[in-house]
Nucleic acid binder design. Structure first.
Lengths: 241, 241
DNA sequence: ATCCTTATGCCAACACTGTTGACTCTACCG
DNA sequence: CGGTAGAGTCAACAGTGTTGGCATAAGGAT
């Protein structure tokens, strides 16, 4: 293979494209986000991204090992933006809550991109930074390592899983120009009450609730549980002293 | 458009394929599951599925509106299998727990298929049957409708979101022939302790915990919370009587 | 038992996709 | 101010989903 992906820091020459744009990893990722927003989840193609950048599609391979690699970079960008929009207050449950919501809404701000990337662990730097932050909050709060890791695991997977699910629904809705609410009022509300008595009895509530994300509800139960675990640990240590 | 998808029930003639196989929605979906297992998440193509069936790729369009429609049918099949492998005992939290685990493991039994479908609401019959079952359990347990719907929403989205996340990780791992455990021991355990003190301090715990799913932990906290809500409701109604 | 209709499967073609090897040309180092 | 090698370009490959037109045989009608 003659082509080699050069790490962004080691890039020395920046030769402008035939159409005049000067490329960079950053520019490519940002343009990819725009292309995804405009053309939908399946609309990010090497050729389209090339045209949007004013460059030949094959040039992308000088920056990323393939479309898959680019996808991971996009995911990491979303993760980074979440961390940028967040700041600690010192109250650990509140901090975790706002961090979780920051991640969730960072992904939902780019539903098409999120649907593509959120269900993948990228292993890239800004994702690792988020992990370090979460574990730090839990350990600093006073939770024993084993508990902290169990909660970290639940927290991050929960947040990513919901980001992917909600983003997927949102992206699909935007592309089909139909809201989830319509789906729930049209399909589910019309089911026969004989076969589906419970759905029929709660159709109105379903139509009102389902278009929103269940993430905040689940996140809060997890955090309440975490707080209870910390209280239990501290009570035990006080008693044993 | 001369082509039209005929609903399975209305299909009258069954003309064998040149290679002798007699097609059906069911056979196509099952073959698709096999192809996915053998060729990975991205390995389900119309041409490959056609060859696996002994039929021309375009024949698939007599059964499904497109690959996307087929994908939704696959998802519904997994949902149906979950419900088939489950039976009620009457103890509502236990039933919800086993149903959640049945859904999760039904998807994880076909990680490649699940990764493709789990983050989408199909609106197909067997998915609706699962919804009816869940709402029925919650309402029969005595929860008021509003609470039941809130919990149903959290329950189903949580289960699907984790199914998608865990299946994606599993599918990726199988295709790359590398376990998550390796990833956590190789990448995360080698991070410098100066920059990532918390990850470094808990590397062993991370490597042990992360390869497993966080779903059971989160599911249990949600169900405990649900039980608490029911108790609160019943206490209030007793007091108020 | 034979005919007719039409659903069903097949074929060829279209406009796409990601990716690569060989190429030009120009930005920068010495 | 030259030479070099690295960035951008080009053309090509094998593969994709999808469709319109066509042949054919299944099954109802006679």
């Amino acid at each position: 293979m003659t082509k080699q992906v050069v790490p962004e820091t080691a890039r020395r020459r920046r030769r402008p494209t035939r159409q005049g744009t000067v490329l960079s990893e950053r520019l490519i990722v940002e343009t990819a986000l725009r292309v995804l927003r405009e053309h939908g989840t399946g609309g990010l193609t090497a050729r389209r991204l090339g045209t949007a950048l004013g460059a030949d599609p094959s040039t992308l391979y000088r920056y990323f090992a393939g479309m898959d690699d680019l996808t991971r970079a996009i995911g990491d960008e979303l993760m980074g933006r979440a961390l940028d929009n967040w700041s600690a207050t010192g109250e650990w449950t509140a901090d975790l809550r706002s961090l979780g919501l920051a991640i969730h809404s960072s992904y939902l701000a780019h539903p098409q991109a999120a649907a593509l990337t959120a269900s993948r662990v990228t292993g890239r730097p800004r994702e690792i930074a988020v992990d370090e932050t979460i574990i730090g909050i839990l350990r600093t709060a006073g939770l024993p390592d084993a508990t902290a890791i169990r909660l970290y695991h639940a927290f991050i997977d929960l947040s990513l899983a919901f980001a992917a699910l909600d983003a997927g629904a949102l992206a699909l809705a935007e592309e089909a120009r139909t809201t989830d609410e319509e789906m729930w009022t049209s399909t589910y509300a019309r089911l026969p009450a004989e076969s589906y008595p419970h759905i029929a009895a709660t159709a109105g509530l379903l139509a009102a609730r389902m278009p929103h994300s269940a993430y905040p509800v689940v996140l809060d139960t997890l955090l309440a549980n975490a707080a209870a675990q910390l209280a239990a640990v501290q009570a035990a240590s006080t008693t044993g002293r």
